[in-house]
């Protein structure tokens, strides 16, 4: 067995705020439910972390259907942050999640900056919550959400409010629907974020030419999947250069090659989202693929490839 131990690369990564993940592969919020839904498909304890569906102070019903539409190499969604609410999450979902031995990240959002603070405060002492991911970037809700995240001042303000409300590490999830991601990233860093995650979905639209109606009940939606990966990678690159806190890469990651591109570009970890819909075992395939890739190249530690983009 000694030989195996020596040849298996170290996969553990730090993502700020003292959080160490057992490997760099997390699930993206809104694509993995509250974890339990995937328990018959994969061993959840093998994940680097689970980011749960976004939580608000009160339950939300979500947008009127249709809520999704397939696109070329991707999909549009306008779910509208349907969720059970923070109280039901604590009472019903955490019991299972805290047994898994993997990082549990509670994604939170509010209709107002104050509400972000209330949700953060409520989760502060909940056993088993590793960190908060603050969603200031959902394109599908009318209040809060994307407008907060597109304004560097508001993004900083929300981050400060959450910072005051909790001792937990804070990851702030950024929207790509901005002109300069660096400005927002720096504002959030200065306000006390421990890490950034990006990108959330790109705002998009699709039309039925026969009925001449939008395909989505919400008219616009968020684009995800392989179609957005080049944009995500570019924005991660820009964010990494703008801040000194860790950046978690998200956007169209379907396999370990995609994940490695983000790590090389400078992401300390990645989140896998839409791929979970296509293949419920996508995260495990990516972890195993990454391990094999490192092994085959004799790389002993995944951290050795983080931020190694060669621009010479």
């Amino acid at each position: 067995m000694t030989g195996d131990v020596l040849s298996t690369p170290n996969m553990a990564v730090s993502i700020g705020g003292g959080i160490v993940l057992k490997n760099p592969v997390m699930t993206a919020s809104g694509t993995f439910g509250y974890g339990e839904e995937f328990s018959s498909h994969i061993d959840l304890s093998r994940l680097g972390g689970i980011v749960v569906k976004g939580l608000s102070l009160r339950p939300r019903a979500g947008n009127r259907p249709p809520r999704i539409m397939e696109t070329s190499a991707g999909m549009l969604n306008a779910i509208g942050l349907e969720n059970v609410g923070v109280e039901a999450f604590i009472a019903e979902k955490m019991k299972f999640l805290r047994t898994l031995g993997t990082a549990i990240v509670a994604n939170i959002f509010g209709d107002t900056p104050k509400e972000y603070g209330s949700v953060a405060e409520r989760l502060n002492d909940v056993e088993g919550v590793t960190a908060l991911e603050v969603n200031i970037s959902c394109p599908n809700v009318k209040t809060g959400g994307v407008d907060l995240g597109a304004d560097p001042v508001m993004a900083g303000k929300v981050t400060r409010i959450v910072r005051k409300a909790t001792d937990l590490p804070i990851i702030v999830k950024l929207t790509p629907n901005v002109t300069d991601i660096g400005v927002v990233a720096r504002s959030v860093e200065e306000a006390g974020a421990d890490a950034l995650s990006l990108i959330n979905t790109l705002k998009g639209m699709s039309v039925d030419i026969e009925s001449r109606r939008p395909h989505l009940g919400n008219i616009t939606g968020g684009l995800s999947g392989p179609a957005v990966k080049p944009v995500a990678l570019r924005m991660v690159w820009e964010a990494v250069r703008a801040v000194s806190i860790p950046v978690i890469g998200i956007g169209g990651i379907m396999n370990h090659e995609d994940a490695l591109e983000f790590l090389i570009t400078g992401a300390s970890a990645v989140q896998v989202g839409t791929a979970n819909f296509i293949n419920p075992a996508a995260t495990i395939d990516i972890i195993e693929g990454m391990e094999r890739w490192l092994e085959n190249r004799g790389i002993a530690d995944v951290n050795q490839i983080v931020g190694t983009l060669d621009l010479s």
Partner: peptide, 17 residues
């Protein structure tokens, strides 16, 4: 029938009122 992405209840895309 409704458009679906995941089929296992997580994407919340196939909502019916």
């Amino acid at each position: 029938e409704e458009r679906m992405a995941c089929g296992i209840g997580v994407c919340l895309g196939c909502a019916v009122r």
